[in-house]
């Protein structure tokens, strides 16, 4: 039973990680908290749902489309909103993205009502492996593997490609990166696109198992803040491990103390870990 709980924790944690990776990129690069990140996830889930409901697309088939849609939303968010407030003092960027998240969430409610919607039949629905006592749902497994793969791709992208190195340079010093010929405006837009792509993947994979409704991204967004800080701002692998840790804390806490405490445990883990690593697990 413990093994089952641990496994469930790792599987859901892996998706948390990917959502957090998207957030940590922007946060690390621009020092901006994107409060609308959870809403990006919601957009991806709705995209997947509507492609399924109207055109009978399987969620796996609509994944690339969802990625494209949310990446575009990310770029637009940067160009239309974040760009204007990026250099403002204090928490003005937070104010803007919070307003944006309210807007997107309630726009979804206005357009599609607050009802829960489900992708009821897909390639993965109800398929599972049974190994001994262990039950592994295929949708969860695919979500976890897909999330891990996407995290890996992003990490390689940042580390190995020219664009990735330009992102790193801009994160370290915008001015010097510009002196080196980096078009930082473009880099910011690209980073928002990558950030959107991350939640695009996560949303399409989650739509297989979770209901889709206007508030569905909110809790993921909130957990993503904690995970990003737990991993250390801007640290991709930090966010990844922290996501797994939070997933485990949530399922273990939920199992042993009752599900009403599962998020409280996750937040408590953050407070405890930060006592020993005040800049997150992998921060310095």
């Amino acid at each position: 039973m413990l093994l089952q709980v641990l496994l469930t924790g790792v599987l859901i944690g892996s998706v948390y990680s990917l959502v957090a990776v998207g957030l940590t990129l922007v946060w690390g690069l621009m020092d901006i908290i994107n409060f609308a990140h959870g809403e990006f996830l919601m957009i991806s889930m709705y995209t997947t749902f509507w492609l399924y409901a109207l055109l009978k697309f399987d969620p796996l088939a609509s994944l690339p489309i969802a990625v494209g849609v949310v990446a575009l939303v990310g770029v637009l968010t940067y160009k239309l909103v974040v760009k204007r407030v990026a250099n403002a003092p204090g928490l003005m960027a937070l104010l803007a993205t919070f307003g944006l998240s309210l807007f997107i969430r309630n726009l979804a409610q206005f357009l599609w009502s607050p009802n829960y919607r489900f992708v009821s039949e897909s390639l993965l629905t109800d398929k599972r492996f049974i190994i001994g006592d262990l039950i592994i749902g295929l949708p969860q497994l695919v979500a976890a593997v897909g999330s891990f793969a996407m995290t890996l791709i992003i990490a390689l992208l940042i580390k190995k490609t020219k664009t990735g190195r330009a992102i790193q340079a801009t994160a370290q010093s915008k001015d010097i990166a510009e002196l080196m010929g980096v078009n930082t405006e473009r880099i910011y837009a690209i980073t928002f696109a990558i950030s959107g792509a991350c939640v695009g993947v996560a949303g399409a994979l989650l739509a297989n198992t979770f209901p889709v409704y206007p508030e569905c991204g909110a809790m993921y967004g909130l957990l993503a803040f904690v995970i990003v800080a737990l991993g250390g701002f801007g640290n991709i692998w930090g966010a990844f491990y922290a996501g797994i840790l939070i997933g485990l804390a949530e399922t273990l806490g939920g199992f042993y103390l009752g599900t009403q405490f599962k998020y409280a445990i996750a937040f408590l883990i953050y407070l405890l870990v930060l006592q020993f690593r005040p800049k997150g697990l992998f921060g310095w």
Binding site: R84, V85, A88, G99, F103, F110
Partner: peptide, 19 residues
């Protein structure tokens, strides 16, 4: 949710034009 939609949009506008 029209009320919160407009409220959110106005916050964004204020932040963008009066940073």
């Amino acid at each position: 949710g029209i009320d919160l939609m407009i409220y959110g949009a106005l916050i964004v506008l204020i932040a963008c034009f009066e940073p």
